[in-house]
Design a protein around this nucleic acid. Structure first.
Lengths: 342, 342
DNA sequence: AGTTAAAATGACAACGCTGTCAATATTCTA
DNA sequence: TAGAATATTGACAGCGTTGTCATTTTAACT
């Protein structure tokens, strides 16, 4: 029942070490030997034991995914992306949700890393933005890849995958401006998230390019939540909409859905009286009524690339054949929640 | 930097085996010895190496969570529940999404199990309902716990955690009947899911108890998706609602949200002209407008218990102190999407 | 062909822990 | 308080792989 590397070695008539070389795709194995071993592996249906590899080897075959994100869709997408890559490469994934406000976080982190001797870590926002964490990892000498909101201007492209929220916001805002909107509200997400400031800057840049003045009253400091969207819309549209706002950018899809909800409560017609847009294109941007105009962000693809980047870092130059993209720009998706100013 | 069991043993002045006994909470360790060792563990901040434990020990410290469920909220809740338990017990979790229609599934399963020598598996619906999988696991002699839709009448309570969807549906239907609704549509979920038939039976039972005839035309064969909810509502309300339906049970919250969406397209007022309800109480049942009446299902608690049950199975009688609940009944949550018949 | 350099392979210990079983310490019995 | 019964501890091998380094084979030269 249980097949070990030794069984394969015997069947192939080589040493265990050679089998090990083959399954790890190490160089200096003759093609012929390689084939013989592979045949034996297949015949016996051999599966290398992960625990033994982790124990004996220099680098382990386990990577971690760390997140502090209440958005289930986001987390699932990230997981699936990393997971699909892991499956291909024979790695294991351990997931580690945590709260960056938690004082025990640091300790927990260290515990996890000590216990499972991770080959590397994928960090997602907002954790990826905290130097407290990256410093800790640097200290522990753990490889990691960060998924970050930002523009690919920095020089640490071998550690980061950027999501260009600036551009996404710029384009969404432009879309609205082209439809004649000038008084555009923005319900910002959590201040602690880099995506919030990136999106805000993109919004501002678009206004500038269209010679449209920015009114500070158009901005609402919120959070990345449905409830915050409700509150934000109420605040922006208060006093019978004296600000004359005709469009609102939600900080993300959830916020936009909240804004939609609030508008409905106030009897406002979407998109006739008010355009609303989101970010991320999560499934429920298609489940609101009307459906949300938003910026599509391919989180599963992004996380796949993050994992790939991590693997190349961990194992040196192997797999360099496939080019790694380290910057992603969400693409705008126009649906029914936005339309011309009337 | 790296602390092994040997270091602890030396500091405590005992053998490695004794330290091992202490960290595994094995019996026959003198209280005094226990304390001495624990002090050493703390002083050195020792963390047992998981790979070594998995390799050397009889049962591993890794459990798996297997799912085939497109519902991100559900998956995340299940994960978090199992994960929280794992953290407490020092186990690792590997997650394994898979498709039960995939022909490679079986092979993948075997590969995963061979590779990581799992202590056990938590199966969630609909995978937990397939004898193909449970048979395979029985064959491989792998412990598992199934989370199932059903009533706790079966005798394999040491392997199953039941979610009483029958009762949930019964109560939701009763709620509607009490509000005077008699023509109640039901947009069923996937036929392959046990929850679909359970919910349907609960619905029927309530009708019987209220002497309300069931019209087969009130039932729509759908899927657990938003789109199916849209289609279902359109079908049930077609021809200007000649069936005179005044309430619709969505197969789950997503379906209900879809029905809500369709109703809106048709210009139907909710809940004045039509009551709509869901199941599960997932976050977006609070993000529709109006908010959904639904049946709250504590998936995180359920999965915690599943994990606990698995651990007691794996390690014999330990932890029996905390009683394990193997049956959960969702509780109805009344919100704005349902109201009296008008 | 005879050297020499380079490539391919193998022997064996080690990774950090637990299982087995033998050794010792403690408690109990008469 | 001796002797048996039991509770507690320890020595050591082994889990299945990989790293190190020695050895053998092949290729590349005169």
């Amino acid at each position: 029942m249980k097949v070990t590397i030794n069984d394969v070695a015997k069947l192939a008539g080589v040493s265990m070490k050679t089998v090990s070389r083959v399954i790890n795709k190490e160089p200096s194995v003759r093609k012929k030997t390689f084939d013989i071993v592979m045949d034996a592996v297949k015949e016996l249906n051999y599966q290398p034991n992960l625990a033994a590899r982790n124990l004996a080897g220099t680098s382990s075959f386990t990577v971690g995914l760390v997140y502090d994100n209440p958005n289930a869709y986001y987390v699932i997408d990230m997981q699936n992306g990393v997971l699909s890559r892991c499956k291909e490469e024979g790695y294991e994934l351990v997931i580690h949700p945590c709260s960056y406000t938690d004082s025990q976080m640091e300790e927990e982190f260290i515990t996890m890393i000590k216990r499972s001797r991770l080959a590397g870590l994928v960090l997602t926002p907002p954790l990826s933005e905290h130097s407290k964490i990256t410093n800790l990892l640097d200290e522990l000498k753990i490889h990691y890849v960060r998924v970050l909101s930002g523009r690919p201007t920095d020089d640490d492209q071998d550690t980061c995958i950027y999501v260009n929220d600036y551009k996404a916001a710029y384009e969404i805002t432009t879309h609205l401006l082209k439809h004649g909107h000038t008084n555009i509200g923005f319900i910002c997400g959590d201040k602690e998230h880099k995506s919030t400031s990136e999106r805000l800057e993109g919004y501002k840049a678009a206004l500038v390019d269209f010679d449209t003045p920015l009114n500070a009253a158009f901005l609402y400091d919120g959070k990345y939540s449905f409830e915050s969207g409700v509150e934000g819309a109420k605040a922006l549209l208060k006093d019978n909409n004296e600000l004359a706002i005709t469009a609102i950018l939600g900080g993300n899809d959830e916020v936009a859905a909240g804004a939609l909800f609030a508008s409905r409560l106030m009897g406002i017609q979407i998109p006739e009286q008010l355009s609303i847009t989101g970010f991320e294109d999560s499934p429920f941007s298609r489940q609101t009524w009307p459906k949300l105009t938003t910026a599509h962000q391919a989180n599963d693809v992004i996380s796949q690339h993050a994992a790939r980047l991590l693997f190349t870092k961990t194992r040196g130059a192997r797999n360099q054949d496939k080019e790694i993209i380290t910057s992603f720009t969400p693409s705008i998706v126009i649906r029914e929640s936005s339309g011309p100013k009337q």
